[in-house]
Structure formats: structure tokens, C-alpha cells
């Protein structure tokens, strides 16, 4: 395990944050780590909705990464940008 700064592009926020995640983190844990800095800071909470993680792409069309997939398994590198968004 190792700490890795990824970029969190959190739905509705104005800023993109540098968030340190562990390479062992699952995508759910990544989403939670990012949410801690955004929800009720700059983004309204949406209770009941699940947060998903996908790689940031030009047209926002990437498939969400599996919730149990780890950062290492996803092959994420320093400063890779992820969309964190509410499902549904």
C-alpha cells in the first residue's frame, strides 16, 4: 500500500481537488475520501444516492469503475483525474 494523490472532479463542485488515496482503497473508499472534502462543503448531500467513480474523459462517457476494484487494480497513477458522481 502507498498513498497516491489523485484528482477528484466531484460532481457539482467548482474546483478539482488533490486527494490522497491508498492504493488498496476500493472505488467506494475513494469516493468516500473525496466526498469528505466536498459534500456539505461545496456540494449538497444527496442521501440515498450512491457515489460512483469513473475516469474523467472529454465527453463524460466512461463506464464507472467497479465499486470493489482497488486503486492499484484500476492502475491509477499520480494526478489521474476521477469523476465522483451521484448515481441515478
Amino acid at each position: 500500500m502507498a498513498m497516491l494523490p489523485i484528482l477528484s472532479r466531484f460532481q457539482y463542485d467548482a474546483h478539482i481537488l488533490a486527494v490522497e488515496v491508498d492504493t488498496d482503497f476500493t472505488m467506494d473508499q475513494v469516493a468516500a475520501a473525496c466526498a469528505e472534502h466536498c459534500i456539505n462543503h461545496h456540494v449538497k448531500d444527496q442521501p440515498g444516492k450512491r457515489l460512483r467513480v469513473r475516469r474523467t474523459t472529454e465527453d463524460d462517457s466512461a463506464e464507472p469503475l467497479p465499486p470493489e476494484m482497488t486503486v492499484a487494480e484500476a492502475g491509477l497513477q499520480m494526478y489521474d483525474c476521477l469523476d465522483i458522481y451521484f448515481e441515478g
Binding site: L7, R9, I16, A18, V19
Partner: peptide, 29 residues
Amino acid sequence: QNCMPICCNVCQFPISNRPGPVWKARVHQ
């Protein structure tokens, strides 16, 4: 805030764009 916004390697400002439903923030790399 207790983390840092990523900053632009040219202008050095936090990389930002319109928030809310339009959600325009985007990093160019």
C-alpha cells in the same frame, strides 16, 4: 477546507469552472 485544490502548471490558480448542475470543472493535462 482541509485539502488542496489542484493548481494549474501555468497560471498557478486552482483549476476551477462553473459549479452546480452544469458542472464545468475540468482539468486539462
